[in-house]
């Protein structure tokens, strides 16, 4: 691990200002992804700002009838919250489908949104990777790509966003609240938070230098039945090949998000009107324009089959 200096944050605004003016600074919350990458020297921050002292660890009711989830709320505490289990079960289920108990106890809401891809070529510093080293090329294209992206990919990168929590948040139309280095607060719809790789795959999201996530808000509950189906190579503690987050109403209408297929939580709202007609009417619209590799071509039909399983369970 490269040396770094360390400070404990005193206020969100001061933390954002410090991160904005310090070259190579990063925030640290749970640290479960950042420290892993620092040990491999894939992440090499020169300064860490610990946001734990900020007390952003509460889940509060909002005036609009939703919830405001502090940036530092752990995955376990969020998934176990009585209101989340009752009104946003898709979120509880998505979180519990990810990582291990030990990691969920430490990983935070903001950190989970910011976790880096698990593309094996990103992790192997001997390989070309435009995300790790811009301009070095992409060894995943034409390499071992079974786990990687099939839609929204570019010629520079086929990495996926690896998380589960954000797929559910995308279905729930969550909003990411931040404070920028200049002290200005902003609210970013989760649909706009993560980027597609394009020709700049080293940039995962729209946060500006120094910008700090302070909370994620959920609008009023949607009702309906909540699902998170995750298809993976192992029954527990594995990343998704394909996952489906869905909220389905009694009349068959609903919302669908797809994980494991793209550089961001994947959702095509226009396709959802066809949900009452079944998965075969919806999945081709969600996956229109897919550009799979030979290795991961199976993901495209797998999205439809996983959605069909969800809709069958919703009807039962």
């Amino acid at each position: 691990m490269r040396p770094f200096t360390y400070e404990r944050a005193t206020s969100p605004e001061a933390a954002a200002a410090a991160a904005g003016r310090t070259q190579g600074a990063k925030f640290i919350a749970g640290g479960t992804n950042l420290l892993d990458l620092m040990k491999l020297e894939i992440e090499t921050p020169t300064h860490l700002i610990d946001i734990r002292p900020l007390g952003l660890d509460k889940i509060e009711d909002t005036d609009e009838g939703g919830l405001r989830i502090g940036a530092f709320v752990t995955n376990t505490d969020l998934a176990a919250d009585r209101r989340v289990r009752r009104d946003y079960a898709v979120l509880s289920r998505a979180i519990m489908a990810g990582a291990s108990g030990q990691l969920r106890n430490k990983a935070t809401t903001a950190g989970n949104l910011l976790q880096r891809t698990r593309c094996p070529y990103f992790y192997d510093t001997n390989q070309a990777c435009n995300k790790r080293k811009p301009g070095s090329g992409c060894a995943a294209i034409g390499g071992y790509s079974r786990q990687l992206g099939v839609i929204g990919v570019s010629d520079a990168c086929i990495a996926t966003y690896p998380g589960d929590m954000a797929i559910a948040m995308r279905v729930l139309d969550a909003t990411v609240e931040t404070v920028k280095a200049d002290g200005e607060a902003r609210a970013i719809p989760i649909a706009d938070f993560h980027r597609l790789p394009g020709d700049a795959p080293h940039i995962d999201n729209v946060l500006e230098p120094g910008e700090l996530i302070t909370a994620v808000t959920l609008p009023r509950p949607l009702g309906g039945k909540h699902f998170y189906h995750k298809v993976r190579d192992r029954r527990s503690y594995a990343y998704a090949l394909v996952s489906i987050a869905a909220v389905v109403q009694r009349d068959g209408s609903g919302r669908v998000g797809v994980g494991g297929v793209a550089h961001k939580p994947w959702r095509v709202e226009a396709a959802e009107a066809a949900l009452p007609e079944g998965a075969a009417a919806v999945a081709p619209q969600i996956m229109a324009g897919a550009r799979p590799t030979e290795d991961n071509r199976f993901k495209v039909p797998l999205v439809e089959r996983t959605l069909a399983a969800v809709l069958a369970e919703a009807r039962s």
Binding site: Y6, I28, G31, L35, D36, L103, N105, K106
Partner: peptide
């Protein structure tokens, strides 16, 4: 429970 290898002692 946590993974003590993925946590800085000073935190």
């Amino acid at each position: 429970r946590i993974n003590s290898c993925l946590s800085l002692a000073v935190m």
